[in-house]
Design a protein around this nucleic acid. Structure first.
Lengths: 305, 305
DNA sequence: ATGAGTTTTTCTCAATGTGAGTCTTTCTCA
DNA sequence: TGAGAAAGACTCACATTGAGAAAAACTCAT
């Protein structure tokens, strides 16, 4: 562990001179996900300088030595990049994703990056905080990521109507096995560059997989929604994150059967953007921290071999 | 992300002088688990120098800047502390657990530690590699850990016979709900100190929870066993890690019903240490990377509220 | 205002998975 | 040789799941 070198006070004080031994920088990077127009989006910044100038990257920055914990650094970076105030930030779920420390992942020096995963309700447009050249929410379905077994080929972005359910919109549902949600866009103005700086494509891929797995057995899908929501809103989250349509009836039954997942507000919504149907009841997140039984992904082919 | 400061070549080269800005040290620590005498054990080293001289700590050390990845550093530290050769190390499962970066977690300076979790088949006694004062396998059930809801109170270690099944051995099975496996020991000679240096008790607690959760939905329990094993051997792993007895018949049925979990060798074991019963069939790990359906922990009270 | 098309919500049914036991057979040990 | 233990196959009642049907409540374009 930390410091096995020193055998006496003098020696370890020498050995721990900060400038003498550890030329490794520590940064945090945030994979921030939100729902916009029914589709899953990722917060990315456009790099202003080399290396990878002009490429997309994850928002992040250096951990301030001696000043902050990793969690605090991640929250700070996320706030800087999104313009979130402390209140809005409080509604965001932020958890550690993992650390990335290949010696050559940054051409300048050995940088260990601690990645975080954030789930946020609909957020305002990103404001290029700090010194990034720009920041934007990129539709996740249009990204092509390293090592993604289900990476979708690049496709032309289609602006347009969405059904409000799952992230597809191209009419080819239900998707065949092994299908990944086809390209679709909603809010972001420009076609996303397919590549990320550094190893950020891998971090994003890991974050997405974590998000998809996490909503199976935790109620975190509610972190994408406002204080109150309908069961259909919740189903739209699962469909967007998993990229597959779900059976509405079974989903309804299941959500209500899991203790502590959601609790009824007694009220009923008005659903302005609806395309018909009765007014849905409103719920808020319950007090469960784990879902039992879990909502398993459809197919997710049995044992992954 | 890494480096948003620089806006031109000159500036970022200056900004990235290794010695100029990041007095944060990066270490790896390994939560290494193995089965000894049917009980789960944790590899710990006795600290030779301050701070926390004489306390138990996790094996670990500095990441060699520019030289190795985090995974490589963890494997190296584990090998140093266990005397494992490359071959034996190949049979060990090693995965990243998480990073710990509270500014004051090490009194000397800001140290970010990337923790790893290792599952190993029965290993030889630990050899105090490096410069630790000693290394030993501590029975997990005798530890009392920070923030552990189910932390067992310290108990006298009882040397002695074990039934070969779950980690109890005190005859009080089946345990009542909420029970955690009572203190028991097998190999280690001295009573374990209940406290760890730094925040290592938290890291251990996180590692144990991860291990308990991970064997639910992955076949990693087989990483604690030799090349071939019986269903009972496998059940003993689950019982030791979860600290609760399992229904032998249901476990048997379930393991065989999960595709790719185990595959039959066609052979049958001799079981020298057995206390009766027919010779069990031998299996080896299958090719599944996920268990479907999963083997859920008993009770694990529904939704954790 | 009317009818077509949607959506919410509830039900049914068959298939599958699960916990708790029982039973037979095969071994070890005293 | 008999008591005790373990492997493994079964049974049974019950919960969970996927697929589908259907009633009721709405929206929207004619």
């Amino acid at each position: 562990m930390d410091g096995r070198r020193p055998d006496d006070e003098r020696e370890f004080l020498a050995a721990y001179d900060p400038r003498a031994f550890a030329p490794i920088a520590v940064t945090v990077d945030v994979v921030a996900l939100t729902l916009r127009g029914g589709a899953l989006h990722l917060l990315a910044v456009r790099r202003g300088g080399p290396p990878f100038a002009g490429a997309w990257a994850l928002p992040g920055g250096f951990v301030q030595a001696g000043q902050e914990s990793l969690d605090e650094a991640a929250a700070r970076e996320l706030a800087e990049e999104t313009g979130l105030d402390a209140g809005a930030l409080g509604r965001v779920h932020l958890e550690q994703l993992g650390s990335y420390g290949q010696p050559d992942r940054d051409p300048r020096m050995h940088v260990v990056s601690v990645a975080y995963l954030a789930f946020a309700p609909h957020l305002p447009d990103a404001t290029a905080g700090g010194d990034a050249a720009g920041a934007d929410w990129l539709p996740v379905e249009s990204l092509h990521l390293a090592g993604q077994p289900d990476a979708a080929p690049p496709r032309p972005i289609e602006q347009g109507r969405r059904t409000g359910t799952y992230g597809g919109g191209t009419g080819r549902r239900p998707p065949s096995p092994g299908d990944s949600a086809p390209g679709a866009s909603s809010a972001s103005a420009e076609a996303p560059a397919p590549d990320f700086a550094f190893d950020h494509d891998r971090i994003v891929a890991d974050g997405l997989e974590r998000a998809r797995a996490k909503i199976e057995y935790t109620p975190l899908a509610t972190a994408f929604l406002d204080e109150t929501f309908t069961i259909s809103d919740l189903r739209a989250v699962y469909e967007a994150v998993w990229g597959a349509p779900l059976h509405a009836g079974n989903f309804h039954r299941k959500v209500l059967s899991v203790p502590g997942f959601v609790e009824s507000t007694g009220e009923t919504g008005s659903r302005p953007g609806s395309r018909g149907g009765p007014r849905a009841r409103l719920y808020r997140a319950g007090d469960a921290r784990q879902l039992h039984p879990a909502l398993l992904r459809p197919d997710h082919e049995a044992a992954v071999r």
